[in-house]
Write a protein that binds this DNA or RNA. Sequence first.
DNA 1: AGGGAAGTTGACGTGCACGTAAAGAAAACG
DNA 2: CGTTTTCTTTACGTGCACGTCAACTTCCCT
Lengths: 134, 134
Amino acid sequence: MPEHYLTIRQMCDAYDVTPRTLRFYEAKELLSPIRQGTRRLYTRRERARLKLVLRGKRFGFSLEDIRQLLDLYDTSGQNLAQIERAHELAKERLGDMIRQRDELTVAIDDLRQQMEWGAEVMASLTSKSTTAAE
Amino acid sequence: MPEHYLTIRQMCDAYDVTPRTLRFYEAKELLSPIRQGTRRLYTRRERARLKLVLRGKRFGFSLEDIRQLLDLYDTSGQNLAQIERAHELAKERLGDMIRQRDELTVAIDDLRQQMEWGAEVMASLTSKSTTAAE
DNA sequence: AGGGAAGTTGACGTGCACGTAAAGAAAACG
DNA sequence: CGTTTTCTTTACGTGCACGTCAACTTCCCT
């Protein structure tokens, strides 16, 4: 089957980004669609990379961070040192992410408690008086 | 005991931020230190608020988001509607945070698998040949 | 063939979160 | 009392991640 390409607009619709964003990512060497004349055509590889970019963004990585990770990611079939390096970076990232998740968990619990407290306040206010104006 | 104040420099050292940052936060109405003449003095309240600001930032909230939350947080002794509103916002935030944590969990698992795969590749390379140059 | 839709390259603008340099006032120290 | 820090305001600069025209080509369709 003949590797089916997407135009820039199809990409935009599929991933909810603007053309500007895709060209910007290309300028930053995050994507490199093939050219048919002057037009851009996006392969399966580019789609995969875009997904990774958008995902990375959701986790607060900068585009430059993401570029380096992507580069490691697909050049790391080269030699052992590269793979070990990637492995190290991955471990660091993993640590970051776990720490971040733990912080989130704490914050979630805090917020839950706050909400319970708020609910109690609301309850006491509604039961004692409707016009709590004193 | 006489509520012990901190100067701007002491704040900077304590929370690892620059004076510029503290003044910037003040301009954005996140902090409002008292003035002794022209000098800023930071109370316990300001310290608590700064902690919340820095925490919010780590979770990717914008300063404007944080300001609104702080405002709700300490004006929400006012009336029931305010508290209910705060409660609603808190629920939304909670949802966001839980979703974010779930995404993180998935990403962590992905990364773990990637790392296992990487470890396997490394293992096969090291056992088969030290100079994998063919 | 002609005309609108889609795509292209500049290039300048924007919002956010500060950095940084200039110039002056105030406090602290020897 | 002078001088050296510390702090102040004012203001312009910066990096990131795009948004927003403008001015063209290029496709596609009837």
